[in-house]
Design a protein around this nucleic acid. Sequence first.
DNA 1: CTCGTGACGGTTGAA
DNA 2: AGTTCAACCGTCACG
Length: 432
Amino acid sequence: MRGAPLRGSSAPLPTPSRTQAVCPWTPSCLGTHRSPLEVRLGAVPRSAWGPLANPPGVFSPGSLLSGASAEQTYGEVNQLGGVFVNGRPLPNAIRLRIVELAQLGIRPCDISRQLRVSHGCVSKILARYNETGSILPGAIGGSKPRVTTPNVVKHIRDYKQGDPGIFAWEIRDRLLADGVCDKYNVPSVSSISRILRNKIGSLAQPGPYEASKQPPSQPTLPYNHIYQYPYPSPVSPTGAKMGSHPGVPGTAGHVSIPRSWPSAHSVSNILGIRTFMEQTGALAGSEGTTYSPKMEDWAAVNRTAFPATPAVNGLEKPALEADIKYTQSASTLSAVGGFLPACAYPASNQHGVYSAPGGGYLAPGPPWPPAQGPPLAPPGAGVAVHGGELAAAMTFKHPSREVADRKPPSPGSKAPDALSSLHGLPIPASTS
DNA sequence: CTCGTGACGGTTGAA
DNA sequence: AGTTCAACCGTCACG
């Protein structure tokens, strides 16, 4: 009922949106799924990104536009004028921005308008962030890690052989009892039945299965592995590993983003955001081109991302620049406060900006204290959790909130403060 | 006016 | 190689 006919892609872009989107988002994709950072930084998860990865090169905005391939489509425009790719996650940069703005106290509805992202999406991202501490989208596609690993199948077979009359639920219990599986990865009764039927039905066969491929996946690392949410593994939290360098793919990678938030970083991000937005007025510039620019961005983003280290460096500059620009922060804030009209959406240059931020997340990995306040921190805590930075943010929050609320006609007035705060942000409490 | 929520159409990747 | 399935996505519209 609700979904009226309009459905997701609100307006079918005039452009042909058919074809598979090439993932302009690539960047996002990268970043998003799995360990974005990781991916980019180096650990490219094989296939997963494959498609995505390629695209970057492929779909440079230019190409997109060029329309060479006729249909490359890429985006659609939502009711707010924002460009999105149906089915694909928003770019990390935007996701990050959403969270940052929220932490600054900007209301979701305002964030939605500013970034031209549906409020539902903003709500979802913020909710997710509060729950998991991650701004990253979940893993798309694929299947959950198999629970019926060879080892499990082997045990099932053993149980069955030992007691041909055993019921699936009994097997299940035994798997748990024997520690073969834990409650999270124990196969369902139906799965066990299927195994009995398909794989063990013909008990005789020892099962090519066993030997065959054993996914490295140990039962123990079920989801998170793949669906990595940023849970900082309890271990990492110390920040030890990840903390240090973002450059490093590892776990840090994916989680990284959220945690990384280098305060400073965040600041820069914010700044970046601004710039990005402002600069880009782009979208505004040419709506028609809209996508392309975006794509570019993304592509750009990706790129930056890709070149792992180098990228980082590259990023930095941009970031810095951004910062510098931002010094003017006032504008930024003002922007925030004042809310640029829709045009704010940065379509194009973002990448520049983004990249910076993107790198940002990666790189700085400091203080985010996911450590204690892991992902799951309570919603309320969510923000607070961040500890230093976030805390700072929080602090700002109120203020900023005020700012936001006021949205006084004269952005300038307060905004500046806010920004400055932001700068300070990282350590407001501590430093200041 | 906000915001949470669910349906929808879409993409992705493993099986 | 192609299909199926299940996961996720963002948008939209409702309440």
